[in-house]
């Protein structure tokens, strides 16, 4: 193995090394960190957001971005509790999943057909969804004390929390789709270089729309599970969803400029966030300082990621100056 190969291996798996350090240190210092119940806790904490994080990974690889998931999650919890109360649970699940897909389709339509910038389109959607849910409920959360559903949302299956099984399922599906299917390859292509993707005949509009549909679907699943877990619906649930999820994806090493990243990276990224939050609480760090630490870590990680991202492709492209210029002249769709 050459020295360069080792250095590349380290760079590619930096998040695992980064994760190992706090884990070792916390195991040594915070009593009860390395226990089955605490590890379970960490996984429970990241499971629901994690489901959305994998969908967001696909979307960021495909070069798009969605601010509206945070509002959608709240809307889904409201819809689920309200309909489950008035009609029944299967109908509620059906309506919620359809709502997620419809919101995704509208976002996708705005971005791919109306050519509205994804940030603006999903910002508008975020406001509209939140306004809709708050108007509908007049700002009041809805309670739904149903012991069976609550037991499902908080229960275990073969020692694994149910919601963590959903998280692992989402991970495996995303991993498989991105790695082994034509769809996955085309998402990488569309996010990596829009112009080239169009030239080789990929239906870019379809893929862009699908990114939002997948996100809508994943968010609705997470929303239904959250409503079951908390026995209630609230517009404010998931207020920090978008940012936590994007942070997890980026910390894992998926590039915000599109075309690069993987489900495995996001898995480690979310786990890093879970360990960090759990560790900060276990060490009883004062709440305001927790925010300072979290914010600083985000800035550092993204900065370093951006620097590394610039260095790797340049060293890969060794076919001369002309090619480099050609590639850099192509527009990048952020």
């Amino acid at each position: 193995m050459k020295r360069a190969d080792i250095s590349r291996l380290v760079k590619d798996n930096i998040i695992i090394i980064a994760l190992a350090l706090p884990v070792i240190l916390l195991t040594m210092t915070a009593s009860g960190f390395m226990t089955v119940s605490n590890i379970k806790n960490i996984f429970i904490q990241i499971s629901l957001y994690g489901i959305v994080a994998f969908a967001m990974t696909i979307s960021i690889i495909g070069g798009e971005f969605d601010l509206s998931v945070s509002s959608l999650l709240g809307v889904v919890t409201i819809l689920f509790t309200d309909i489950a109360k008035r009609v029944n649970v299967p109908v509620a699940i059906l309506v919620c999943v359809s709502a997620g897909i419809v919101v995704g389709l509208i976002n996708g339509f705005m971005v791919s057909k109306l050519k509205i910038n994804a940030f603006v389109a999903t910002l508008a959607m975020m406001l509209m969804l939140k306004g809709f849910a708050l108007t509908y409920t007049n700002g009041r959360p809805i309670n739904f004390p149903n012991p069976a559903l609550n037991a499902f949302g908080n229960g275990d299956f073969l020692g694994m929390p149910n919601i963590t099984l959903f998280f692992l399922g989402a991970f495996l599906i995303t991993w498989y789709v991105l790695r082994n299917t034509k769809f996955g390859r085309n998402v990488y292509a569309a996010g990596g270089n829009l112009v080239v993707a169009k030239m080789v005949g990929i239906n870019v509009d379809f893929y862009k729309t699908m990114l939002f549909v997948i996100l809508g679907f994943a968010t609705s699943v997470a929303g239904v599970l959250m409503a079951m877990r908390l026995s209630s619906g609230n517009t404010l649930f998931g207020g920090d969803l978008t940012m936590s999820v994007v942070a997890g994806v980026v910390i894992g090493g998926t590039s915000l400029s599109g075309g690069r990243g993987s489900a495995v990276k996001t898995f480690w990224g979310m786990l890093f966030i879970g360990v960090l939050f759990n560790g900060l609480q276990r060490l009883a760090v004062q709440a305001n300082w927790q925010d300072v630490i979290k914010g600083s870590i985000l800035i550092v990680v993204v900065s370093v990621d951006a620097i590394l991202a610039q260095k790797i492709p340049l060293s890969q492209i060794t076919t001369g100056r002309k090619r480099k210029e050609q590639i850099s002249a192509l527009p990048r769709d952020v």
């Binding site: 806790n41 959250m226 877990r229 609480q281």
Partner: peptide
């Protein structure tokens, strides 16, 4: 006494309380 920020979110508070119970 340890005080944490529940971020006006029941989901966050549930996670915090579960961890706190586990911490003894």
């Amino acid at each position: 006494l340890t005080i944490v920020d529940g971020q006006a979110d029941a989901s966050v508070q549930l996670d915090q309380i579960k961890t706190a119970i586990d911490q003894g």
